[in-house]
């Protein structure tokens, strides 16, 4: 008990648990609200087969076809879409698609981005300079446009379930890599000049060992923060791609952006249920993850942190800022990371 839950125990040093204990008042409320919404989102995704009344591509049951644009009520709690699908079922199944895309996109971009950032920052020289210019170029570009181009390249614009998910996830990855790259590179450059890295060089440790053992371990403290920001952005990019017609076909999976695109013409004729519910699902999913990220950001930024709980000792992970150095610019950088949707 003491070793696991004490002030410096293992559980308390886990990223989110630590911040939860550290927070008070409004910040704690925001963090908890975010965690609850995110938890519900994940649960819905896992339990989708049990929760959804119908399949995502079900058009009929034993009583015959559902019919298109049926208003909410009766057999269809949230009505049916213009294509004759059950709205509630598609909203619930959509969480699954979104969660898979988040996981694939974030895992891919963390691995590639961290690797490139580490190597670039550690080696320096012209490799570093070239990579920085490339990353900055990609970073400044509208991410949705880049995702469109990547989606065309990967799937040719039309997709099956895994094809569509991979296309969306990889397009999002292309956009995210520069963000991880920038952060990890900046940290690496800073850590490289620390005395313990120099001592490791002196005693003859190999470059890969120094990079993984000494630099990487100390450079990852900001990752949970970017992780949440990117997860929420992944949901938005997926929906944006779907809205522009790069979504996953309705027979392959449920995708909120696709449903919103199909509901465009419904809106003009006053049919509100086909757009409202998938849209709210996007907002809630992004809201939950962003609330978590936002709270982590505030708790990590000494200028924004309100008070600490007196009984919790500050841990080193608390003092994290995305860009070390300029105290003014790091907030800007965080906001701009988040600003890219």
């Amino acid at each position: 008990m003491a070793s696991l839950t004490g002030p410096r125990g293992l559980i308390n040093r886990l990223p989110i648990v630590h911040q939860l204990r550290q927070s008070v008042g409004l910040q704690r409320g925001m963090l908890i609200a975010g965690l609850v919404i995110t938890g519900l989102f994940v649960l819905t995704a896992i339990l989708a087969p049990l929760l959804a009344p119908y399949g995502y591509s079900t058009l009929r049951d034993e009583d015959g076809v559902f019919g298109a644009q049926q208003p909410p009520g009766g057999k269809h709690l949230l009505g049916t879409t213009v294509g004759g699908y059950d709205v509630l079922s598609r909203v619930i199944w959509g969480t699954q698609t979104a969660l898979i895309v988040i996981i694939v996109a974030v895992v891919l971009s963390i691995f590639l981005g961290v690797f490139l950032g580490l190597v670039s920052g550690y080696i320096g020289g012209w490799v570093d300079r070239v990579l920085v210019v490339i990353a900055d170029g990609v970073y400044a570009f509208p991410s949705l446009l880049l995702a469109i181009v990547a989606a065309i390249a990967i799937s040719g614009g039309q997709s099956s379930f895994w094809g569509g998910i991979m296309a969306a996830a990889i397009s999002i990855t292309v956009v995210f890599i520069p963000q991880y790259f920038r952060v990890i590179r900046a940290e690496t450059v800073r850590i490289k000049s620390e005395a313990y890295v120099e001592s490791a060089m002196v005693i003859g440790s190999s470059a890969p060992r120094i990079m993984t053992q000494h630099v990487l371990r100390n450079a990852t403290r900001t990752l949970p923060l970017i992780f949440t920001l990117n997860s929420s952005e992944a949901v938005l990019t997926l929906a944006g791609l779907g809205f522009l017609g790069f979504g996953i076909e309705p027979t392959a999976a449920a995708e909120w952006g696709y449903d919103l695109n199909k509901s465009l013409s419904d809106v003009t004729s006053g049919i509100w249920w086909t757009s409202l519910f998938p849209g709210l699902a996007i907002v809630l999913a992004v809201l939950g993850i962003t609330l978590v990220g936002e709270s982590l950001n505030d708790l990590a930024d000494p200028r924004l942190r309100t008070r600490r709980r007196a009984d919790v000792a500050p841990a080193p992970t608390a003092a994290a800022s995305v860009v070390p150095g300029g105290s003014l610019t790091d907030a800007v950088d965080l906001d701009s990371l988040e600003a890219r949707s």
Binding site: S232, L236, A239, G240, F243, G257, L260, S275, G279, I282, V283, V286, L287, T290, E338, S341
Partner: peptide, 8 residues
Amino acid sequence: CYATPVFF
């Protein structure tokens, strides 16, 4: 504002 997609 951030969480709501512009099209929604």
